[in-house]
Amino acid sequence: MEIKSIKSQTFIAFSFIILFFVASASAQALRQNFYQNVCPNVESLVRSAVQKKFQQTFVTAPATLRLFFHDCFVRGCDASVLIASGNNQAEKDHPDDISLAGDGFDTVIKAKAAVDSDPKCRNKVSCADILALATRDVVALAGGPSYKVELGRRDGRISTIASVQHNLPRPDFSLDQLNNMFARHGLTQPDMIALSGAHTIGFSHCSKFSKRIYNFNPKSRIDPTLNRNYVFQLRQMCPLRVDSRIAINMDPTTPQTFDNAYYKNLQQGRGLFVSDQVLFSDQRSRGTVNLFASNNTAFIKAFVIAITKLGRVGVKTGRQGEIRIDCTRPN
Protein backbone atom coordinates (compact mmCIF):
# COMPACT_ATOMS: atom_id res chain seq x y z
CA MET A 1 0.00 0.00 0.00
CA GLU A 2 2.85 2.35 0.89
CA ILE A 3 4.59 1.70 -2.44
CA LYS A 4 1.37 2.42 -4.35
CA SER A 5 0.94 5.65 -2.40
CA ILE A 6 4.46 6.81 -3.27
CA LYS A 7 3.89 5.96 -6.93
CA SER A 8 0.61 7.89 -6.90
CA GLN A 9 2.23 10.93 -5.30
CA THR A 10 5.10 10.77 -7.79
CA PHE A 11 2.65 10.65 -10.70
CA ILE A 12 0.69 13.64 -9.36
CA ALA A 13 3.88 15.65 -8.84
CA PHE A 14 5.09 14.73 -12.35
CA SER A 15 1.73 15.78 -13.82
CA PHE A 16 1.99 19.19 -12.16
CA ILE A 17 5.51 19.61 -13.56
CA ILE A 18 4.25 18.82 -17.08
CA LEU A 19 1.36 21.27 -16.71
CA PHE A 20 3.77 23.94 -15.47
CA PHE A 21 6.07 23.57 -18.48
CA VAL A 22 3.12 23.56 -20.91
CA ALA A 23 1.77 26.77 -19.35
CA SER A 24 5.23 28.36 -19.37
CA ALA A 25 5.80 27.43 -23.02
CA SER A 26 2.45 28.98 -24.00
CA ALA A 27 3.24 32.19 -22.13
CA GLN A 28 6.68 32.39 -23.74
CA ALA A 29 5.04 32.16 -27.18
CA LEU A 30 3.55 35.61 -26.64
CA ARG A 31 5.48 38.55 -28.10
CA GLN A 32 4.93 42.26 -28.62
CA ASN A 33 5.27 42.23 -32.41
CA PHE A 34 3.18 39.11 -33.03
CA TYR A 35 0.97 40.73 -35.72
CA GLN A 36 3.73 42.70 -37.42
CA ASN A 37 3.40 40.82 -40.71
CA VAL A 38 -0.35 40.08 -40.79
CA CYS A 39 -1.87 43.19 -39.19
CA PRO A 40 0.83 45.80 -38.51
CA ASN A 41 -1.62 48.53 -37.49
CA VAL A 42 -3.64 46.42 -35.03
CA GLU A 43 -2.73 48.59 -32.05
CA SER A 44 -3.79 51.85 -33.69
CA LEU A 45 -7.06 50.28 -34.89
CA VAL A 46 -7.92 49.07 -31.40
CA ARG A 47 -6.82 52.32 -29.78
CA SER A 48 -8.99 54.42 -32.08
CA ALA A 49 -12.09 52.34 -31.33
CA VAL A 50 -11.41 52.40 -27.58
CA GLN A 51 -10.93 56.17 -27.59
CA LYS A 52 -14.32 56.66 -29.25
CA LYS A 53 -15.99 54.42 -26.70
CA PHE A 54 -14.16 56.12 -23.81
CA GLN A 55 -15.33 59.53 -25.00
CA GLN A 56 -18.92 58.29 -24.85
CA THR A 57 -18.67 57.07 -21.24
CA PHE A 58 -15.92 56.80 -18.63
CA VAL A 59 -17.40 53.47 -17.49
CA THR A 60 -15.55 52.04 -20.50
CA ALA A 61 -12.33 52.13 -18.49
CA PRO A 62 -13.19 50.22 -15.31
CA ALA A 63 -15.57 47.92 -17.21
CA THR A 64 -12.91 46.79 -19.70
CA LEU A 65 -10.22 46.43 -17.05
CA ARG A 66 -12.48 44.27 -14.86
CA LEU A 67 -13.55 42.20 -17.87
CA PHE A 68 -9.90 41.35 -18.61
CA PHE A 69 -9.29 40.29 -15.01
CA HIS A 70 -12.41 38.11 -14.86
CA ASP A 71 -11.51 36.49 -18.18
CA CYS A 72 -7.95 35.60 -17.20
CA PHE A 73 -8.76 34.23 -13.75
CA VAL A 74 -11.40 31.74 -14.89
CA ARG A 75 -10.15 29.82 -17.94
CA GLY A 76 -7.07 31.85 -18.69
CA CYS A 77 -6.86 34.88 -20.99
CA ASP A 78 -8.83 33.34 -23.87
CA ALA A 79 -11.83 35.69 -24.18
CA SER A 80 -14.15 32.91 -22.96
CA VAL A 81 -15.94 35.51 -20.79
CA LEU A 82 -17.23 37.13 -23.99
CA ILE A 83 -19.07 34.04 -25.21
CA ALA A 84 -22.86 34.28 -24.98
CA SER A 85 -25.13 31.34 -24.26
CA GLY A 86 -28.67 30.75 -25.42
CA ASN A 87 -29.52 28.95 -22.17
CA ASN A 88 -27.67 31.34 -19.82
CA GLN A 89 -24.98 28.80 -18.95
CA ALA A 90 -21.87 30.71 -20.02
CA GLU A 91 -19.27 32.38 -17.78
CA LYS A 92 -20.91 35.76 -18.14
CA ASP A 93 -24.14 34.33 -16.68
CA HIS A 94 -22.58 33.43 -13.33
CA PRO A 95 -23.60 35.69 -10.41
CA ASP A 96 -19.96 36.84 -10.06
CA ASP A 97 -19.98 37.98 -13.71
CA ILE A 98 -23.52 39.33 -14.12
CA SER A 99 -22.37 42.64 -12.63
CA LEU A 100 -19.75 43.07 -15.38
CA ALA A 101 -20.72 46.31 -17.12
CA GLY A 102 -21.93 46.01 -20.69
CA ASP A 103 -19.59 48.79 -21.77
CA GLY A 104 -16.64 46.43 -21.34
CA PHE A 105 -18.14 43.87 -23.72
CA ASP A 106 -19.16 46.61 -26.14
CA THR A 107 -15.63 48.01 -26.17
CA VAL A 108 -14.20 44.68 -27.35
CA ILE A 109 -16.93 44.21 -29.95
CA LYS A 110 -16.31 47.68 -31.39
CA ALA A 111 -12.54 47.19 -31.38
CA LYS A 112 -12.96 43.82 -33.12
CA ALA A 113 -15.10 45.48 -35.82
CA ALA A 114 -12.46 48.17 -36.29
CA VAL A 115 -9.71 45.59 -36.71
CA ASP A 116 -11.77 43.48 -39.14
CA SER A 117 -12.61 46.58 -41.20
CA ASP A 118 -9.04 46.36 -42.51
CA PRO A 119 -9.04 43.57 -45.15
CA LYS A 120 -5.46 42.70 -44.24
CA CYS A 121 -6.44 42.12 -40.60
CA ARG A 122 -9.84 40.50 -41.01
CA ASN A 123 -10.15 37.36 -38.85
CA LYS A 124 -6.42 37.47 -38.10
CA VAL A 125 -6.50 38.94 -34.57
CA SER A 126 -7.96 37.07 -31.60
CA CYS A 127 -10.62 38.52 -29.35
CA ALA A 128 -8.33 37.67 -26.42
CA ASP A 129 -5.59 39.91 -27.81
CA ILE A 130 -8.07 42.67 -28.60
CA LEU A 131 -9.26 42.57 -24.98
CA ALA A 132 -5.67 42.74 -23.73
CA LEU A 133 -4.92 45.75 -25.97
CA ALA A 134 -8.18 47.49 -25.06
CA THR A 135 -7.34 47.04 -21.38
CA ARG A 136 -3.98 48.77 -21.83
CA ASP A 137 -5.67 51.58 -23.74
CA VAL A 138 -8.37 52.29 -21.14
CA VAL A 139 -5.74 52.37 -18.38
CA ALA A 140 -3.76 54.93 -20.38
CA LEU A 141 -6.85 56.99 -21.22
CA ALA A 142 -7.70 57.16 -17.51
CA GLY A 143 -4.29 58.62 -16.74
CA GLY A 144 -2.36 55.43 -16.11
CA PRO A 145 0.63 53.97 -17.96
CA SER A 146 0.72 53.01 -21.64
CA TYR A 147 2.67 49.77 -21.49
CA LYS A 148 3.76 47.24 -24.11
CA VAL A 149 1.31 44.35 -24.57
CA GLU A 150 2.43 40.82 -25.37
CA LEU A 151 0.30 39.28 -28.12
CA GLY A 152 -0.33 35.90 -29.71
CA ARG A 153 -3.23 34.57 -27.63
CA ARG A 154 -5.83 32.35 -29.24
CA ASP A 155 -9.51 32.32 -28.32
CA GLY A 156 -11.06 29.53 -26.28
CA ARG A 157 -14.07 27.58 -27.49
CA ILE A 158 -15.54 26.75 -24.08
CA SER A 159 -17.40 28.97 -21.62
CA THR A 160 -19.34 27.41 -18.75
CA ILE A 161 -21.05 28.91 -15.75
CA ALA A 162 -19.57 26.15 -13.56
CA SER A 163 -15.98 27.16 -14.35
CA VAL A 164 -16.42 30.51 -12.58
CA GLN A 165 -17.14 28.92 -9.19
CA HIS A 166 -14.33 29.53 -6.65
CA ASN A 167 -12.11 31.15 -9.30
CA LEU A 168 -12.67 34.83 -8.56
CA PRO A 169 -11.73 36.73 -5.38
CA ARG A 170 -14.62 37.72 -3.14
CA PRO A 171 -15.16 41.09 -1.41
CA ASP A 172 -14.79 39.47 2.02
CA PHE A 173 -11.52 37.62 1.34
CA SER A 174 -8.70 37.66 3.89
CA LEU A 175 -5.09 38.28 2.90
CA ASP A 176 -4.35 34.55 2.96
CA GLN A 177 -7.31 33.82 0.70
CA LEU A 178 -6.22 36.52 -1.74
CA ASN A 179 -2.62 35.33 -1.78
CA ASN A 180 -3.62 31.70 -2.30
CA MET A 181 -5.91 32.50 -5.21
CA PHE A 182 -3.40 34.76 -6.95
CA ALA A 183 -0.55 32.31 -6.32
CA ARG A 184 -2.49 29.66 -8.27
CA HIS A 185 -1.97 31.89 -11.30
CA GLY A 186 1.70 32.59 -10.66
CA LEU A 187 1.08 36.01 -9.10
CA THR A 188 2.83 37.16 -5.94
CA GLN A 189 1.51 39.21 -3.04
CA PRO A 190 3.03 42.44 -4.49
CA ASP A 191 1.38 41.56 -7.83
CA MET A 192 -1.96 41.10 -6.08
CA ILE A 193 -1.65 44.43 -4.23
CA ALA A 194 -0.67 46.23 -7.45
CA LEU A 195 -3.59 44.73 -9.39
CA SER A 196 -5.95 45.67 -6.54
CA GLY A 197 -4.94 49.25 -7.31
CA ALA A 198 -7.16 48.99 -10.40
CA HIS A 199 -9.98 49.74 -7.95
CA THR A 200 -8.83 53.35 -8.21
CA ILE A 201 -11.19 53.61 -11.22
CA GLY A 202 -13.58 50.82 -10.25
CA PHE A 203 -17.11 50.82 -8.94
CA SER A 204 -19.25 48.41 -6.96
CA HIS A 205 -22.85 47.86 -5.96
CA CYS A 206 -24.16 48.44 -2.45
CA SER A 207 -25.00 44.77 -1.98
CA LYS A 208 -21.30 43.86 -2.11
CA PHE A 209 -20.38 45.83 1.01
CA SER A 210 -23.62 46.80 2.81
CA LYS A 211 -22.95 44.31 5.60
CA ARG A 212 -19.84 46.31 6.58
CA ILE A 213 -21.87 49.44 7.27
CA TYR A 214 -25.10 47.99 8.70
CA ASN A 215 -24.64 44.51 10.15
CA PHE A 216 -20.99 43.48 10.31
CA ASN A 217 -21.16 40.92 13.13
CA PRO A 218 -22.96 40.26 16.43
CA LYS A 219 -20.50 42.48 18.31
CA SER A 220 -20.40 45.44 15.93
CA ARG A 221 -22.84 46.78 13.37
CA ILE A 222 -19.97 48.58 11.62
CA ASP A 223 -16.71 47.07 10.43
CA PRO A 224 -14.17 48.54 12.89
CA THR A 225 -11.54 48.91 10.14
CA LEU A 226 -13.76 51.44 8.32
CA ASN A 227 -13.37 55.19 8.71
CA ARG A 228 -16.48 56.45 10.54
CA ASN A 229 -16.96 59.48 8.27
CA TYR A 230 -16.69 57.15 5.29
CA VAL A 231 -19.37 54.92 6.81
CA PHE A 232 -21.68 57.94 7.09
CA GLN A 233 -21.06 58.82 3.42
CA LEU A 234 -21.69 55.24 2.31
CA ARG A 235 -24.94 55.05 4.26
CA GLN A 236 -26.16 58.20 2.52
CA MET A 237 -25.42 56.66 -0.87
CA CYS A 238 -26.63 53.18 0.09
CA PRO A 239 -29.68 53.44 2.36
CA LEU A 240 -30.60 50.11 3.89
CA ARG A 241 -33.93 49.77 2.07
CA VAL A 242 -32.92 51.22 -1.29
CA ASP A 243 -31.99 49.26 -4.43
CA SER A 244 -28.73 47.47 -3.64
CA ARG A 245 -27.71 47.67 -7.28
CA ILE A 246 -26.77 51.35 -6.92
CA ALA A 247 -23.16 51.77 -8.11
CA ILE A 248 -20.57 53.38 -5.83
CA ASN A 249 -17.06 54.54 -6.79
CA MET A 250 -14.40 52.43 -5.10
CA ASP A 251 -12.10 55.46 -4.91
CA PRO A 252 -14.03 58.31 -3.24
CA THR A 253 -11.31 60.89 -4.00
CA THR A 254 -10.22 60.62 -7.67
CA PRO A 255 -12.60 58.02 -9.16
CA GLN A 256 -11.85 58.88 -12.78
CA THR A 257 -8.05 59.00 -12.55
CA PHE A 258 -5.78 55.97 -12.60
CA ASP A 259 -3.46 56.89 -9.74
CA ASN A 260 -2.28 55.73 -6.31
CA ALA A 261 -5.16 57.36 -4.40
CA TYR A 262 -6.56 53.86 -3.73
CA TYR A 263 -3.65 53.15 -1.37
CA LYS A 264 -3.93 56.53 0.35
CA ASN A 265 -7.59 55.73 0.94
CA LEU A 266 -6.65 52.41 2.57
CA GLN A 267 -4.37 54.26 4.97
CA GLN A 268 -7.41 56.28 6.06
CA GLY A 269 -9.78 53.32 6.43
CA ARG A 270 -11.56 54.01 3.15
CA GLY A 271 -11.26 50.64 1.45
CA LEU A 272 -14.71 49.71 0.13
CA PHE A 273 -14.33 45.92 0.43
CA VAL A 274 -12.97 43.87 3.31
CA SER A 275 -10.51 42.51 0.72
CA ASP A 276 -9.35 46.08 0.03
CA GLN A 277 -8.94 47.26 3.60
CA VAL A 278 -7.21 44.06 4.71
CA LEU A 279 -4.24 45.05 2.55
CA PHE A 280 -3.55 47.82 5.06
CA SER A 281 -4.89 46.29 8.27
CA ASP A 282 -2.75 43.16 7.86
CA GLN A 283 0.86 43.89 8.83
CA ARG A 284 2.19 41.51 6.16
CA SER A 285 0.93 43.70 3.30
CA ARG A 286 0.87 47.15 4.91
CA GLY A 287 4.43 47.97 3.86
CA THR A 288 3.60 47.57 0.17
CA VAL A 289 0.45 49.68 0.56
CA ASN A 290 2.49 52.41 2.24
CA LEU A 291 5.08 52.26 -0.54
CA PHE A 292 2.49 52.61 -3.30
CA ALA A 293 0.67 55.36 -1.37
CA SER A 294 3.83 57.43 -1.09
CA ASN A 295 5.29 56.67 -4.51
CA ASN A 296 3.03 56.64 -7.56
CA THR A 297 5.96 55.66 -9.79
CA ALA A 298 6.53 52.52 -7.70
CA PHE A 299 2.85 51.63 -8.01
CA ILE A 300 2.80 52.15 -11.78
CA LYS A 301 5.94 50.05 -12.26
CA ALA A 302 4.51 47.24 -10.13
CA PHE A 303 1.14 47.43 -11.90
CA VAL A 304 2.71 47.07 -15.36
CA ILE A 305 4.70 44.04 -14.20
CA ALA A 306 1.61 42.48 -12.59
CA ILE A 307 -0.83 43.03 -15.45
CA THR A 308 1.73 41.70 -17.93
CA LYS A 309 2.00 38.53 -15.83
CA LEU A 310 -1.80 38.40 -15.57
CA GLY A 311 -1.99 38.52 -19.37
CA ARG A 312 0.03 35.30 -19.57
CA VAL A 313 -2.30 33.24 -17.37
CA GLY A 314 -3.58 30.10 -19.09
CA VAL A 315 -3.07 31.49 -22.59
CA LYS A 316 -3.71 29.40 -25.67
CA THR A 317 -1.14 29.76 -28.46
CA GLY A 318 -0.05 28.09 -31.67
CA ARG A 319 -2.69 25.57 -32.74
CA GLN A 320 -4.64 25.76 -29.50
CA GLY A 321 -8.03 27.46 -29.60
CA GLU A 322 -9.03 29.57 -32.60
CA ILE A 323 -9.43 33.10 -33.92
CA ARG A 324 -13.11 33.80 -33.36
CA ILE A 325 -14.94 35.47 -36.23
CA ASP A 326 -17.57 36.64 -33.74
CA CYS A 327 -16.26 37.28 -30.23
CA THR A 328 -19.57 36.21 -28.70
CA ARG A 329 -19.53 32.65 -30.03
CA PRO A 330 -17.10 29.91 -31.11
CA ASN A 331 -16.62 29.44 -34.86
Results as ranks from 00 to 15, higher is better:
200 T>S: 04
98 I>V: 10
132 A>P: 12
323 I>E: 01
244 S>H: 11
123 N>R: 01
59 V>N: 10
210 S>R: 15
312 R>T: 10
174 S>P: 03
209 F>T: 05
149 V>Y: 08
72 C>D: 04
129 D>Q: 04
196 S>I: 00
224 P>L: 11
266 L>P: 04
41 N>I: 10
100 L>E: 05
63 A>I: 07
184 R>P: 12
176 D>R: 14
33 N>Q: 12
141 L>G: 03
88 N>S: 13
60 T>Y: 06
27 A>S: 13
175 L>D: 00
45 L>S: 06
162 A>W: 07
285 S>F: 01
322 E>V: 13
198 A>V: 10
122 R>Q: 15
191 D>T: 04
43 E>H: 01
235 R>P: 00
292 F>R: 09
303 F>S: 10
265 N>C: 07
41 N>E: 06
279 L>C: 03
26 S>F: 07
84 A>W: 13
114 A>H: 05
308 T>P: 06
208 K>R: 15
260 N>C: 11
75 R>H: 00
236 Q>H: 06
71 D>T: 11
177 Q>M: 03
322 E>Q: 15
92 K>L: 08
125 V>C: 08
258 F>I: 12
125 V>Y: 06
122 R>P: 09
116 D>I: 01
234 L>M: 08
176 D>Q: 12
113 A>I: 00
229 N>S: 03
304 V>G: 05
181 M>K: 13
68 F>N: 14
46 V>W: 02
239 P>K: 11
140 A>N: 09
236 Q>A: 08
136 R>F: 11
318 G>K: 14
4 K>H: 14
240 L>E: 10
46 V>C: 06
114 A>T: 02
31 R>C: 02
123 N>L: 12
254 T>D: 11
154 R>H: 15
88 N>V: 00
68 F>D: 10
148 K>C: 00
330 P>I: 14
249 N>S: 13
166 H>W: 13
312 R>I: 02
20 F>Q: 10
2 E>R: 10
201 I>W: 01
11 F>W: 04
254 T>L: 08
114 A>R: 05
195 L>V: 05
278 V>F: 12
23 A>M: 12
46 V>N: 05
196 S>M: 04
135 T>K: 06
52 K>A: 09
45 L>A: 05
320 Q>P: 04
74 V>A: 04
46 V>Q: 04
180 N>F: 01
117 S>C: 03
280 F>S: 12
